[in-house]
């Protein structure tokens, strides 16, 4: 694991800070691996999670769903694929769980090719396993993936059935009871997008919410890197925002608390976000440590240069 292009004789003659600065990056990778895997194993064995204090943005997501009357229609767009499921799946699971528990009628769509599969998996894990009374077609429906990105969003503004002519089972939209009266997207009082990039939350704001800001609310969950890009839209266009696994953990803790039953432990699948905060904590501390070491090297070199 030594730097392949570094001459060993010269390397030993270098001062300590030079050697540390040129350390093979694979050592850093190894440290990160240990920082993440250690807490995963520890939390897996003990089952303990860290407490979460929900922030305003996460509380707003919970509140937007909570205030909807039962049987309200909710459009849930799965704008991500398995690659980012590690970061986004916990929030998608909790969002669907809260909607199912509130007896809202859920319409799932996907603007990413593999989003439909992720939605199907979430339906299986949450609705079919824990809310078996909900019937497909009456209480929820997966419309599957539709190609076209923003063009699909624009079409949803005027004609839902044209944008999604059939569901993922092949059933015509006009025959699906839950969508019988739905003509356009503005008939959904709430739009939820779990988004990993393009097309995603930003495009929903630009093409749909900007047109119907007063008629429908929009809440979203996104990856950590796209959260800074979405904060400018909160709270005007985006009523609630879950940023990365931290936002998911805050929201998950609220949903778990609201649905807690005395004497019954929360299922591990509903603790995924909170469990991932452990590895995140240690990984962040490692990064802080690495930045400090980097600066020690920088100042040592500067002092040597000055001397």
């Amino acid at each position: 694991m030594s730097g392949g292009n570094v001459n060993s004789t010269n390397a030993s003659a270098r001062p300590w800070f030079e050697r540390l600065d040129r350390v093979d990056r694979r050592w850093i990778f190894l440290l990160m691996f240990l920082a993440v895997s250690g807490p995963i194993l520890w939390i897996g064995v003990t089952g303990k999670t860290l407490p979460e204090a929900p922030t305003l943005a996460a509380r707003a997501v919970f509140q937007e769903i909570n205030q909807l009357p039962a049987r309200s229609l909710v459009l849930i767009s799965f704008d991500y694929d398995p690659a980012s499921a590690g970061e986004l799946q916990p929030m998608a699971t909790s969002l669907v769980r809260q909607c199912a528990a509130k007896n809202l009628r859920m319409v799932f769509i996907a603007l990413w090719p593999l989003g439909s599969q992720v939605a199907q998996q979430t339906i299986q894990d949450v609705i079919r396993d824990d809310y078996p009374a909900l019937k497909e077609g009456d209480d929820f429906v997966n419309m599957g993936y539709q190609a076209g990105n923003e063009a699909v969003m624009k079409l949803l503004l005027t004609d839902f059935a044209k944008a999604f002519p059939k569901d993922s089972r092949g059933e015509a939209t006009s025959n699906i009871p839950i969508l019988k009266d739905v003509k356009m997207v503005s008939q959904f009082p709430l739009l939820i997008s779990v988004s990993a990039g393009y097309p995603g939350s930003k495009e929903w704001v630009q093409y749909v919410i900007s047109a119907y800001n007063e008629k429908m609310n929009f809440v979203t969950g996104c990856t950590g890197v796209s959260a800074p890009q979405l904060y400018p839209y909160f709270p005007q266009q985006i009523a609630g925002l879950l940023g990365a696994i931290k936002g998911a953990a805050e929201y998950e803790s609220m949903v778990n608390e609201s649905l807690a039953v005395d004497g019954v432990a929360t299922a591990p699948k509903y603790l995924q976000a909170q469990r991932r905060m452990g590895p995140q904590l240690v990984a962040h501390l490692l990064m802080v440590g690495l930045i400090i070491v980097g600066n020690v090297i920088f100042f040592a070199r500067k002092r040597r240069g000055a001397a």
Partner: peptide
């Protein structure tokens, strides 16, 4: 009922 208003038949 009010809660159905969002989905009433247009």
């Amino acid at each position: 009922p009010p809660q159905e208003s969002a989905t009433s038949t247009p």
